[in-house]
Design a protein around this nucleic acid. Structure first.
Lengths: 343, 343
DNA sequence: AGTTAAAATGACAACGCTGTCAATGTTCTA
DNA sequence: TAGAACATTGACAGCGTTGTCATTTTAACT
């Protein structure tokens, strides 16, 4: 019933070690031997036992995905991406949701790492921005790949995957400007988050490039939540829209949806009286009325690349993935929530 | 740096095996010995190595979560629930998303089970309803717990967690009836899914109990998606609402949101002209306009219980959880999308 | 052909734990 | 208080791999 490496070795007429070499794609195996072994592997339908590999080997076949992002769509996308790579490479994935505010995160990490000796971690934002965590991992000698919001830097090319929110926000803003909007509000997330500052800077750069003066009064800081989108829209549009805002950039789709909700409350027609845009292109940007203009972020692809990068670091030279993309720029998706200004 | 069971044994002045007994809560350890060992465990901050345990022991410390449900909110909730139990009990979780239509699912399962010898699986709907899968698992001798939509039966009490969608649908329907609605449409999911038929039957039972005749023409079969909610609402309300429908039950929140969207398209005011209800109380039932009346389903609690049940099966008598709830009934949450009929 | 270097393979210990079974302590019975 | 019965502990093998190092085979030279 249970097939072990020994069974394969016996059938192939080689030693256990040779089989091990074959399944690990180690060099120094004659082509002919390789084929014989693979045949045996296939006829017996052999699957190497992960526990044994993790125990015996110096490097493990388990990677971890750590997140503290409350957005279910985001997490699922990231998870699926990493998972699909893991499956292909025979790795196992351990999920580790956490709450940065909990305080005992450090202990938590250590426990996880001890329990299942991990080959490495994929860290997602905003947790991936925490230097304290990075320092800890460096100190512990744990491999990791960070998914970060921002423009790539020269250093860290082998450790980070960048999502260029700056460029995407610039593009969205330019889109609104091209529609004739001049007073554009921004409902941003927590400014502690890099994604917020990047998106904000992109927005500001676009305005500047179009010679539109910047006003802090047009910026509302929320928490990337639907509720804070509602509050933000109410705050910015106030009584009768004194600031004459004709377009509102949502820091993400949820905030944009909140703004949509608030507009409804205030009797503002979208997009006739006000354009609203989102960010991320999560499923519910298609489930609002009207559907949201947003920036599409290919989270599943991003996470696949993150996993690839991690595997490469982990296995050193064994891996030949040389073409790993490390910068992604979300791209504009125009839907019904944005339109020409009537002001 | 790396603490093993031997280090603990040495510090405690006992044999390795005794430490093993303590961390596994086996009987036949003197209280005093237990305390000494636990002290050593704590001062060294010992964490048993999972790979070694899985390799050496007869039962493994890894459980799997299998799902083919496309709803991110649902999956995350289930995952978090199972994960939180796993953490407490020192288990590891392997995530296994799959697509029942893929065909090669059986092979897929076997591979997963071989790779990491699993203690058991938590199966979520609709995959948990597939007899072919259950049969396969039975044949392979794999432990599992199924989360199922439906009313509990006498058998299977130790293997299934039931979500009583029937009762919940009954309650929602009764709520609408109490608001004076008589022509109530139903946007149901795929009738292949048990959740659909259960919800449908609950709806029908409520109507019957209130002496309202049933009409098949009031039922639209979709796929639990936003788009099919849009289509369904259009189909049922048609041109000028010939069937005089004053309320629409959504099979889930997404379909209800779709119906909301369609109503907007058709210029129907919610809830003044039409009441719409959802099912599940997922986050975005609070992010629509107006917010959805729905049935709250405690997925995180449900999944925690599923995990508990699995652990109990796995470890036999070692576990004293005797009070595991196995039936959950979603409860009505009234929000703004339902109101008295004006017809 | 005879040597030597390099490539390919194998024997065996080790990874950190649990299961088995034997050894020792403890408590109870008569 | 001896002996039985039971509770507690420990020695050691084995789980299925990989790493190390020794051995054999092949290729590449004189």
């Amino acid at each position: 019933m249970k097939v072990t490496i020994n069974d394969v070795a016996k059938l192939a007429g080689v030693s256990m070690k040779t089989v091990s070499r074959v399944i690990n794609k180690e060099p120094s195996v004659r082509k002919k031997t390789y084929d014989i072994v693979m045949d045996a592997v296939n006829t017996l339908n052999y699957q190497p036992n992960l526990a044994a590999r993790n125990l015996a080997g110096t490097s493990s076949f388990t990677v971890g995905l750590v997140y503290d992002n409350p957005n279910a769509y985001y997490v699922i996308d990231m998870q699926n991406g990493v998972l699909s790579r893991c499956k292909e490479e025979g790795y196992e994935l351990v999920i580790h949701p956490c709450n940065y505010l909990d305080g005992n995160m450090e202990e938590d990490f250590k426990t996880m790492i001890k329990r299942s000796r991990l080959a490495g971690l994929v860290l997602t934002p905003p947790l991936s921005e925490q230097n304290s965590i990075i320092d800890m991992l460096d100190e512990m000698g744990i491999h990791y790949v960070r998914v970060l919001s921002g423009r790539p830097t020269e250093e860290n090319q082998d450790t980070c995957i960048y999502v260029n929110d700056y460029a995407a926000a610039y593009e969205i803003t330019a889109h609104l400007l091209s529609l004739g909007h001049k007073n554009i509000g921004f409902l941003c997330g927590d400014k502690e988050h890099k994604s917020t500052t990047e998106r904000l800077e992109g927005y500001q750069a676009a305005l500047k490039d179009h010679s539109i003066p910047l006003h802090d009064a047009l910026i509302y800081e929320g928490q990337y939540s639907f509720e804070s989108g509602v509050e933000g829209a109410k705050a910015l549009l106030g009584e009768n829209n004194p600031k004459n805002i004709t377009a509102l950039l949502g820091g993400n789709d949820e905030m944009a949806a909140g703004a949509l909700f608030a507009s409804r409350l205030m009797g503002i027609e979208i997009p006739q009286q006000l354009s609203i845009t989102g960010f991320e292109d999560s499923p519910f940007s298609r489930q609002t009325w009207p559907k949201l203009t947003t920036a599409h972020q290919a989270n599943d692809v991003i996470s696949q690349h993150a996993a690839r990068l991690l595997f490469r670091k982990t296995r050193g030279a064994r891996n030949q993935d040389k073409d790993i993309i490390t910068t992604f720029t979300p791209s504009l998706v125009v839907r019904e929530s944005s339109g020409p200004t009537s002001a």
